[in-house]
Every structure is written in C-alpha cells, then in structure tokens.
Design a protein around this nucleic acid. Structure first.
Lengths: 114, 114
DNA sequence: CATGTAATTCCATGCATGTAGAATTAACAA
DNA sequence: TTGTTAATTCTACATGCATGGAATTACATG
C-alpha cells in the first residue's frame, strides 16, 4: 500500500457517518449486514448511505455481496490489515513504543467469529 | 478517545500533503523540524503549510515549540497512540487476526531515537 | 529603534464532498 | 407480465476544504 491508497482509505474513514458505518460493520462481523438494515439502524436515508458505502468500497475497506434482492456489506479484512500496516510503518520508524500498544487484548479475545 | 476526535484525526491524515508532512515529522523523530525547513523540503508555500500544520495540531497529532524565531514541529506520541488504540479497538472486536500483524518488527528496531 | 527573517493570519478563489428527493435498475413472487 | 421491495444512480444544492498571494505579527540583532 502506498501513500495515495492510504490517503484514500483514511479519507473514507474521516467522516463521522462513515466511521459509524464502518464500526457497525466491524461489529456485525463476517456475516455482514444488508444495506436496508444499516439504513434503519443508523437512520441514514438510502441514497446517502449508498454514497457512503461506495466510498468505503472503493477505498477497499468493505465488500459487497448480493443475496437475493438485498445487498449485504461486510468489512474487508485484507484492506483493513493493509491500512493498519501502513500506519504502523509510518508510526514506528525507530520508535517501537508508539505501536507497541500495551493494553491490546487481541490475543485473549475469542476467535469463534472468524 | 471518542468518535468525533478519531474522525478529526483521520480527517487530518486523509490529505496527501498532510500525510507526507506527517511522515516527514515521524521520521524526523523527537527533535522535530522547523516550519521553514519543512516548507522547502516538501516544496509547499508557507501559508499552505501553516494551514496544514494547524490541522494536524488541532487534531492532536503534532506539537509546536518555539525556538528563537523559528517554530519546530514534532509528532505527538500520545495523540498517535490514542488514535492507534481507537482504530484497533474498532478493528479487533472479536477478530484478533486483524490487528495481530505478523510482520511488524517493532520490537527488533533500535530504540536509541527515543 | 530600525532592519531582516520566520511564521502566521487574512482573504478570495476554485474544487471537492455531503446530503437527500426523484427517477431508475434489479430481483423475486404470483 | 404486473406488482412489490431493495438498492442504486441521477441531479441539484449547500457546505466545507485546499491553495497561495498580500498583509501582519513575533523575534532577534546591530
């Protein structure tokens, strides 16, 4: 991942509606959530939501999958991983304390959602 | 750190000029770099640079310190750490593989720059 | 105090982004 | 094929952001 892509991804996440949307999809996990449900859940009109979903999609942060007549969205694990790696690359040049977050309990969390 | 602050920080980093600026300050480390040098280094006019520096400052990502008649900027370790924590919080709810980046060699890097 | 240097604010311009109603496409069901 | 539901594009409007020249503030030195 290079500067331009990272900037695109960060730009997609820099908007409160989209950050909330992103969070919701992260929590909803691998099964994702259909657009209509997201629209009611976050109280965002469908055209507006569609715009934001597209932003996150082209930024490589979420994926779309049609199920019948509804379209389900879910987070793109690879895309997020790449962004995280880019940021930690940036943050940690010779400064390991920055990224060595002490209170991240990732490894103690259940993995049954994967 | 809450949604609004995170969105503010992400917004500050979402712009290519500022992302480059941020990178430069990360690399320049704890001694930072005066605004004039940044201006010539990145070939950004002073008023434009000043605008971007302010954006990163109010987002809590960099710090300013006057030395004589020049003002030196450097990264704000705490601010960056908070943003990283917020993002990993978001990214890792029940999905530890996302943030458990395998190829991060932070702990093998020299710490003499701190 | 006067001069030179560093950086910032002021301000106007142009471009990009967010928003949401109306029209449109896509899919299923009878 | 007609009707219903889901989601998207089209479109227009308003707001916000990036840019950089000109004027301004802050500081050091003779």
């Amino acid at each position: 991942m290079e500067l331009h892509d990272a900037s695109h991804a960060l730009s997609a996440l820099s908007q409160t509606s989209r950050l909330e949307l992103f969070r919701l999809l992260v929590i909803s996990g691998d099964e994702g959530m259909p657009a209509g449900q997201i629209s009611t859940e976050l109280d965002i009109p469908k055209p507006t939501l569609s715009f934001h979903l597209k932003e996150l999609s082209t930024a490589g942060l979420i994926l779309a999958e049609r199920h019948g007549r509804s379209i389900t969205y879910k987070i793109n694990i690879e895309g997020i991983r790449e962004l995280m790696e880019f940021l930690t690359e940036d943050c940690c040049q010779g400064r390991p304390d920055l990224c060595n977050l002490s209170n991240n309990s990732f490894n103690t969390l259940p993995t049954n959602l994967l």
